[in-house]
Design a protein around this nucleic acid. Structure first.
Lengths: 197, 197, 197, 197
DNA sequence: AATGAATGAGGGTTCATTCAT
DNA sequence: GATGAATGAACCCTCATTCAT
């Protein structure tokens, strides 16, 4: 299995760095190879083509992402707590790897639609985690029983994603993780939820 | 002012159509020119370069977008109502122009980071509308007085945007406008906001 | 019609020279462009791709070839005379353009099979001329009435072609045209045809 | 001597199959190695480089070719009979090995000029057989005493070669061997040789 | 103002060959 | 002898932009 060979990960890590530092459209295969310390052709021993490097990058990184978040929320009982851990861990994982944050939030979105559709496939794993939290919350009566799960998923993902993107666009100038409580509160209560109507 | 000459708008409308039908990476200047019924070189009489066409496209369309939304919410007193109109109008404007929806949600995001930064500039106008709604809500006590306006803005925009993108990705298969009440409810009350705590 | 524009012919003539001097596999598009005095991209305004340049080269040159031979044989009555003119003109046309001779006899045959099949299409025009000579000869009783026209065609073309190829392989060291009478005699009488059996 | 080791022939036979089935330009060294059941590097223990494989292929196969034809014609007295056997055996040997026919008539001609010059060297053995037949014929008065042997050789080889190539190009759709008498007749008598002049 | 023919820089990918094991 | 992972040079084509008319 190529995924377990050292060069496979070497190349993916090199791709993250090169894309973060040069931008998606200036991340030539030859640059990635150089950064990885291999010959250009070697990349094609591990990946079908350049697109495959990018998809694999996303799968690899997002896979770990989902795993780590799942570990984190497994220990929590309440949906609200689970959601909190999701937000915090999501922020933490990207805050600790600025290169990766830039690549996933800005650069990889410049890819063509086909690649983006494949990326969306990968995102489904993440969205399933969100969905299971929502289901839990409904079962425990933390959340409305007629909450529209699909839309709530979109709100949660859209909010987290937009928050991270804004943070990256501002060159990581502020502490992302510290935003977790407020973001969590917004997701649970909305803009005016705790107000008497 | 070139913006008022007929060919200026002709070219922008042609760009929307060409990008929607061919995708960002297959929207060559020559195709746009042909669709607009002008010569390739003519485009450079009205725009500095291709990027300028895209930025102008976004400015022009988003400008109208903001104007229309502002008209819509001007008549409303309560922030909650204003927010509802924002969501509904946002959805309505994109639902009535599938080409434009595809272009803004999918295709234009494939542009390079510089272009995206400029697009973000344009988005500021939109975000200011959101901000003024939030300010109104805080003043009228509809929203928490210590609501984090910046984050709430990101939630609102992130949620709306993600909802539209998902709709476009699903080939406009369902009715976007009908989602307005639920999305509005989520934004105001969050996932669990109306539950007793 | 692109075929009549000066650059069309310029590029084809440049291709003949570049291929003759560098060989098929060292005839890069950029070299052809340079020789033609145009930019690389200009070639793609007149030809679909590199293969199209080569096919067009063959069509153009072979087309003239067939035309000139047809003119030449039109004035002759007897099939034998026609055949003589075919051989002599074929030899003469290639003898007067060593570059073209090298390209058609050696270099263009290195192309891939698809290109070669298309070249064969072009050759059909030539073979039809040969066939009409043979038909004439059969009608006038110069040739056997049960001569196998298809095979005779292959003999005539194969012999002429092999003779020219050998001449090119020997770096045009001897006079090709002077071989015409002997080759003609061989084609009419064979190795032992004029001998009593 | 490497020529006698089993892998030497294994590799050559693998090359014939791979070239016939994939075409010259898709016959990578790695494919040949795989077909031969050896590692890529092993090929370089038996051959200097890829070109050497092809030349050796031609030498090996054409060597057998010439041997078999020589055996065949040794028993014949008359030049005409010898020529008949040459044609028939040539056709027969290629008709019984479609792969080899495709490789020698179509694929190997796509090689570069240097390789083709070396192939021509190999062909000299064949041409010497033809020449000896012609000399015999002249001595026995079957053929004209002032027959141009060099040109006659080219006619004979050119005609046979063109006939086989046409047959291969037509996907071996008809019986090649049955053409022997007619081809032989053409070579001896030409198109009109048996007619009174 | 409008045209559109011409420009030319730039990069993903293949594959013959090597060499450490 | 045999292996096969690694190498890295080489090239066709696209398309944003220009400028003579």
């Amino acid at each position: 299995m190529k995924r377990n060979k050292p060069k496979y990960k070497q190349i993916i890590d090199a791709a993250v760095i090169v894309i973060a530092e040069n931008g998606y459209h200036n991340a030539q295969v030859s640059k990635i190879a150089k950064q990885a310390g291999v010959a250009d052709g070697t990349i094609y021993l591990y990946f079908k083509n350049k697109e495959d490097v990018l998809i694999s990058l996303f799968q690899e990184k997002m896979g770990q992402f989902v795993e780590k978040i799942e570990e984190e929320i497994a220990g929590k009982q309440r949906a609200s707590e689970k959601l909190y851990m999701l937000v915090e861990k999501h922020f933490a994982l990207l805050a600790e790897d600025h290169h990766l944050a830039k690549v996933t939030q800005l650069e990889l979105r410049q890819s063509n639609k086909d690649l983006r559709l494949k990326i969306n496939e990968v995102l489904k794993g993440y969205l399933q985690v969100v969905e299971s939290i929502l289901q839990t919350g409904i079962e425990t009566n933390e959340f409305h029983k007629d909450l529209d799960v699909r839309l709530a998923k979109q709100m949660i993902f859209g909010t987290i994603d937009e928050t991270v993107t804004t943070w990256v666009m501002n060159d990581h100038r502020y502490n992302l993780i510290e935003l977790s409580p407020k973001v969590h509160h917004l997701l649970i209560h909305g803009c005016g939820g705790s107000q008497p109507s």
